[in-house]
């Protein structure tokens, strides 16, 4: 701790990584002994973790070195597309046009919340400084895509399995919003659960990732806490806006202007 406070983050080398990988080997041996059949998957996941993170590390070093706004925007675009596709793929059901709607939602919510933090709270100059913008947008997207995917999943499940109920409202003169409102609010609630859980237990069950990272890098715990509070509020806003945005986009796609439920547009994977 003293060394960290005095010198910042303690750099790790290959030997340190080798020692850490021993922990994964123990997990593998345990799986092998219990016959869980997960040894192969654990090995692949471990190798992927190393390769993906090393790749990201090199890309970030390169982008930081370029100090170029277009390069940062290109990284953002890539992250948004991957996050949007992942959010839609995680859901059990989908519909045509779901991916671009998820990407658009993530773009609007991710950029508005992340830029609020970098430009108005941390006051980074320039606002697109990759050292701040990319990690922050990464956190926002990582958390928001989970909320998005839960929101889409719940809404499509409701619109599929409760189609008769929704049509009974439409048949009695409900507008498409009156008929779909319960499903939309249910989807938003589902999408908000992960961040609400995280906020409820923040610091009690585990130390949040960013705060942990800052403390390990030598930051004072109270300074790290302030950053973490900002991050939690940012993630809460992004999750709420993301879950709501994608639910409204989905609702709009699955109810047409004639106030008809178009559940035939939903397909199972």
């Amino acid at each position: 701790m003293t060394a960290a406070a005095a010198h910042g983050a303690i750099p790790l080398d290959a030997v340190d990584l080798a020692i850490a990988s021993g922990l994964v080997v123990i997990a593998g041996l345990t799986s092998l002994a219990l016959g869980t059949g997960l040894v192969g998957r654990l090995a692949v996941a471990s190798v992927r973790t190393v390769l993906q993170l090393l790749l990201v590390g090199y890309v970030l070093e390169w982008v930081f070195g370029l100090d170029s706004a277009p390069a940062v925007m290109a990284c953002l675009a890539f992250m948004l597309v991957v996050a949007g596709r992942t959010a839609v793929r995680r859901a059990e059901r989908t519909f045509r046009g779901a991916t671009w709607r998820a990407i658009l939602t993530l773009t609007l919510t991710g950029l508005s919340t992340a830029l609020t933090v970098t430009a108005l709270v941390i006051r980074v100059e320039p606002w697109w400084d990759p050292q701040y913008l990319l990690p922050i947008i990464g956190m926002v997207l990582g958390n928001t895509l989970t909320g998005l995917s839960l929101s889409i999943d719940k809404l499509l499940e409701d619109l599929s399995e409760r189609a008769a109920l929704i049509e009974s409202d439409l048949a009695l003169g409900a507008t498409r919003w009156e008929a779909g409102r319960d499903a939309v609010t249910g989807a938003v609630r589902r999408g908000m659960i992960p961040i609400l859980n995280a906020m409820t237990v923040a610091g009690l069950v585990s130390l949040p990732g960013m705060m942990t990272g800052q403390i390990l890098a030598g930051q004072r715990p109270l300074d790290a806490v302030l950053y973490q509070i900002v991050v939690m509020f940012m993630l809460a806003a992004a999750s709420a806006m993301g879950a709501t945005g994608v639910a409204l986009f989905t609702w709009h796609r699955l109810f047409d202007a004639r106030h008809q439920l178009r559940s035939e547009r939903i397909r199972r994977r």
Binding site: A164, A171, H259
Partner: peptide, 19 residues
Amino acid sequence: GYPEWRRRVVLVPQVPAFH
């Protein structure tokens, strides 16, 4: 108007659905 139409022409399905 579609909601108005369905108020004037009401369908009662064979197996009704209720909240």
